[in-house]
Nucleic acid binder design. Structure first.
Lengths: 256, 256
DNA sequence: CGAACTCTTGATGCCACTCAATTCTAGTGG
DNA sequence: CCACTAGAATTGAGTGGCATCAAGAGTTCG
């Protein structure tokens, strides 16, 4: 096979899942097409539990999935929201290391793990692509650790909005309309804060004209630069270009 | 060169880096032996900066390395401490995504990235091994997100101690002596707290007889079960076996 | 022995959590 | 079409865990 990518590249999309170019997903998908079976999952339905034997690997075709880990007393940390093209359960472990649930109704492509692994060994190209996928996840995991350990609630929310914007870049006609398919509690558990804090922070952002709240699940971005400043320049390794120092950020913070 | 591992394997080690069996490292090491060059790094010396062009990949042969990301104002999040057998800069990106420094004096094996990548494409076995390595890192990154987002300072410290114990399992004669090669500030930036909090928490643990403080950089574990309870049952996916509920943990917390 | 650390300890303050009440929203059945 | 209801989101008041600021005590090393 020649070196030209097979998949549709008609429109110049900038969609960056977890910092990984979309080309990867498509190519993996092509490679695995033969193994695929479909699966539908309802909102809030569990796809698999942490600790379940890992027989299948999934690709999200439609909808949003949350993956998370919990402590015994119920404290939950959502480690990612997965959308079209993202992979679920991608590991060499015998057991899933996190629980996966639908946020919305979800359509999944399901690949049997044993056959996938066999293909991996036989096909270096595929192997490299999956390697790239995992790498992207690792990179975004490190960004998330920075966020969880060192950012304030406001900065966390700002970063989250910027992340979502990057993801849906090019997919929506309106550039600064941001949909929030997940409830506040999910956002909170993703950012390591409480729902109340999410709510209050969103209100604050509205007050200082960073965003506007259209519906409960939809905000419009009024001041992208302001958000970027709050989020910090490296919020997901691309999109920034502008280096900004602390003073600038402070300027935003007191503005309202 | 034959297939027998080159480095010392005289004693039955159970060392689990980031949840990955040590066998992986050895095998990768053997595969890459031909490419290797050595490099010495002093304590607190930078190995590479985040954003530097990524021409080399490193394996830690001796010493401890910290990898971290920073915000503009200097807030730092350490995303990992790497020891013998761990890989540095393992990614397909053109630039390093974190900064790496020696905690102690460090000896590194250095592999040129381009040649490593070529080998990856030609050698599915090697590819699979590296895949496993990355997978392990991803798994521990998810544990760390749970820790950073949802655990209290005390639980964080307890988890950290248990992690270190697992790592040095089998390498030391004395089972419950724990060495802390890194300063308090590093521990703080790894756990998302301040040095003061680390200091106070360690003192508290001593007070309630969970640990004993031998030297500044060495503690002895007096009550491993107590630590495990505080850390939570899944603190790094193995070693636990015992499921414990909230009440038990509370019991510990008030004990002193 | 003193300089420069790192680590500890104390006092105070604030951000975000907790608890609680109200409002909003979406879905249901009359 | 409009109550009615359950769950989600917001809002408010009060608290507490951890950060901040500031000394003081060890430790290392020339």
């Amino acid at each position: 096979m020649d070196s030209v990518a097979k998949h549709d590249s008609s429109q110049p999309r900038l969609k960056l899942h977890h910092g990984t170019p979309e080309t990867l997903q498509s190519e993996v998908h092509d490679h695995l097409f033969c193994l695929m079976s479909r699966q539908e999952v309802n909102a809030n339905q569990v796809i698999f539990f942490e600790g379940d034997p890992c027989n299948s690997i999934f690709e999200v075709a439609k909808g949003v999935v949350r993956i998370y880990k919990v402590l015994q007393d119920g404290r939950r940390q959502i480690t990612g929201f997965l959308t079209r093209g993202d992979f679920l359960g991608l590991s060499l472990d015998d057991h899933y290391v996190y629980t996966a649930e639908g946020v919305t109704d979800v359509t999944l492509c399901r690949y049997p793990r044993d056959r996938l692994e066999k293909m991996l060994e036989e096909n270096p190209r595929l192997s490299k692509k999956l390697f790239g996928l995992m790498n992207g996840e690792l990179v975004s995991a490190q960004f998330q650790m920075l966020l969880l350990g060192r950012k304030t609630a406001t900065e966390k929310l700002a970063t989250f909005f910027v992340q979502l914007l990057q993801r849906q870049e090019g997919t929506e006609g309106s550039e600064h309309i941001l949909n929030l398919p997940m409830p506040r509690g999910d956002i909170a558990d993703y950012l390591g804060v409480t729902t109340e804090t999410v709510s209050r922070t969103i209100f604050w952002m509205k007050k200082v004209n960073l965003i506007e709240l259209n519906k409960t699940n939809q905000v419009s971005i009024e001041d992208l630069n302001g958000l970027l400043m709050l989020a910090g320049p490296f919020c997901s390794s691309r999109l920034t270009g502008t280096m900004l120092n602390r003073e600038d950020r402070k300027g935003i913070t007191v503005k309202g």
